[in-house]
Design a protein around this nucleic acid. Sequence first.
RNA 1: GCGGUCGUGGCGAAGCGGUCAACGCACCGGAUUGUGGCUCCGGCAUUCGUGGGUUCGAUUCCCACCGGUCGCCCCA
Length: 429
Amino acid sequence: MSMRAPRGTADILPNEVKRWQYVESILKDICDRFNYDEIRTPLFEHTEVFQRGVGDSTDIVQKEMYTFEDRGGRSLTLRPEGTATVVRAFVENKLYGSPIQPVKLFYFMQLFRYERPQQGRMRQLNQFGVEVLGSADPSVDAEVIALAMTCYKELGLSSLKLVLNSLGDKESRQNHRKALVEHFSPYKDELCSDCQKRLNQNPLRILDCKTDRDHPAMKTAPSILDYLNEYSEQYFNQVKAYLDMMEIPYVIDQNLVRGLDYYNHTAFEIMSEAEGFGAITTLAGGGRYNGLTEELGGPNTPGIGFAMGLERLLMAIDAENIKLPIDSSVDCFFIAVGETAEKQASQLVHKLRVNGIQVDKDYQGRKMKAQFKAADRLKAKYVIILGDNELEDDIVNVKNMKTGDQTEVPLTDLVKTMQAELLGGSQNE
RNA sequence: GCGGUCGUGGCGAAGCGGUCAACGCACCGGAUUGUGGCUCCGGCAUUCGUGGGUUCGAUUCCCACCGGUCGCCCCA
């Protein structure tokens, strides 16, 4: 096959789409209760938005962006990440001037990253995320985390781990950075090549390295938590206190460093602990990014958010064997036999449809038996039969597929009868 | 970007140099000329991922590429 979807992309077929729609409806409903409003931003941005917003030293910017030049010579990039585009929109549209503060936003986005695909990692991926701009109150941090956890909980997931850390403010980070460089410099030659680079660029990320995880210097490395200044420490304590009050369990991981440059203070990750989930266990990640608005040309506005991968969310639902309540049945299947009946069927089917009843029919002039099979396949609740016998008496036979009961219904009463049947049927179930 | 593994009909899966290919499921038709989920019979691969090569001959051997999958890096 030569015409294939590009590597790392996937078609989501109707059956699967039903699951997505269900999940999306739950997430939207939660956002509604938390009073977050949806924002939609362009699929691509000026490349600079991500270079400045996400950070030049990050893997995303260095090797994962789909960047292209348009016919006007502009460098554009398919968004690899949500926060930078949302913050750009926040600044550009001066939402910092909105009378309602903070600004609480959610989004569903398709993102693009040039990576080697594997399960739970696609080149085109879907994320649901949330951003709150305009408040530096620790209760907001806790609320955002609570929102994320609520999403998983209401979808029935339970094998989850919330990992929490604080990266501190600028001053704390600088002090910690200095300590890290001093600590690791003597061992530079023993560290992996990535970490040798990180030592200069972003020593914090050495802590997150899997290659050097067992190096003795790791254990004794200075923890950011020991370098938090008073404000940062208090802030972190308050976030934890709010989570405790909401009874949201978490574990502290001093080595949790998020991959993007813009994070400070609260950083968190939600992982799946379900058996057989695969190597990639991160379901969602987020944190605070005070200062990012300035980086993108706006006034200094505090912000915090998270994003969760929807592909991974669906995977986790499967891994925990959760059956989503998806109704794939059709209410009625109309069976017509004979030319006259088939012609009249189209008319009756349309009449039922415009009166709010879900109906499907055969389109291939098949025999009654085959039409019944089709009705079964569609899990039809009722079959409506119109043939020569019925035509003579101006009636139709309505068969309840579950009970097998069949009754004659005058054509003039069909809509009314079906409305009554279907209403009654749903009440019983 | 690196490494392992795999690529046969709509799906699952045999064949592993020599009649262009078992079997199962699904689907279509018939037995049963107006009633489904059972049974029986029949039908259903003119590119065996793509392109080269070896050979008298390749789905079967070799190479490259493409793709899936698992892992590494990193992340959602």
